[in-house]
């Protein structure tokens, strides 16, 4: 556990010694603000809640989370430091979890910095802060799921750009199978049972509950199993490279 924290600390430090972290935070907050207040028509809705804020998160994260996760393993492989890291007395699992946690903490920080939107809602009206809390929990889990997928695609290649694109494609797929305009199209030829089964794999379906103030154990399990599976796959991919 100590080693996981040592690795996470180094990784987090890495974000802040380069301008990447600050650029990311600024862009994230600008985009989150834009989507909420302009595209999401926060003020015109006439309701005290953060629905306009959370609804955009699956799309916002689609681009920004792979940007955080793309370097995790591809950079280690490109620079050859993966050899250094994995010949130290750590297991591959510890290294993967350490690096994942560092990035997830970073995303949590970015999310925490959106706190003015909570203040705004509370000043202007009387929102249900329980719903806001579950919204944040869901949003963090959503970011974790995307991040784990980016971690996996990052292990596949030495090239960060390739890792980014692969990750966006996988995450987009996880959005679209449960995105209403897409499922509405599928109704024409697929049976409702089929659509429901496919939509069960979508982050949209499972993020919905959190936005409504419900923490359903199935939704929780979905996000945690996506994270678990993607990190497990990361381990298999890294072992695969070394086995030759």
């Amino acid at each position: 556990m100590n080693l996981v924290w040592t690795i996470a600390k180094r990784e987090l430090g890495g974000y802040f010694t380069s301008p990447v972290a600050y650029v990311f935070l600024v862009i994230f907050l600008l985009l989150a603000g834009f989507f909420t207040f302009t595209a999401g028509a926060f003020f015109e809705r006439g309701e005290a809640g953060l629905a306009a804020f959370f609804a955009w998160h699956p799309w916002l994260y689609l681009i920004l989370v792979p940007a955080v996760g793309m370097r995790l393993w591809s950079e280690e492989r490109r620079a050859g430091t993966i050899e250094l890291l994995l010949t130290m007395p750590v297991t591959t699992a510890q290294a993967i979890i350490g690096k994942f946690l560092a990035s997830w903490l970073f995303l949590a920080l970015a999310l925490a910095l959106t706190f003015p939107v909570i203040i705004t809602a509370n000043v202007l009206g009387d929102p249900d802060n329980g719903v806001i809390f579950t919204g944040y929990v869901g949003s963090l889990l959503l970011a974790g799921a995307y991040l784990a997928i980016s971690c996996m695609t990052s292990a596949m290649t030495r090239n960060q750009v390739v890792a980014f694109i692969l990750s966006v494609v996988v995450c987009l797929f996880l959005i679209l199978v449960g995105f209403n305009p897409v499922t509405d199209l599928m109704v024409r030829w697929a049976s409702p049972a089929f659509i429901d089964t496919v939509a069960a794999f979508s982050v949209m379906t499972h993020f919905d509950g959190f936005q409504k103030g419900v923490i359903d154990s199935r939704d929780l399990l979905f996000f945690l199993s996506v994270i678990g599976f993607a990190l497990f796959a990361t381990g298999a991919i890294i072992r695969g490279h070394r086995a030759g």
Partner: peptide
Amino acid sequence: PLEAKRLIGYLPENAASYPDM
């Protein structure tokens, strides 16, 4: 592996290290 790795000091080819540290 962990017991063995504890005993070893390793300088990899091209002496890779984290450039931003």
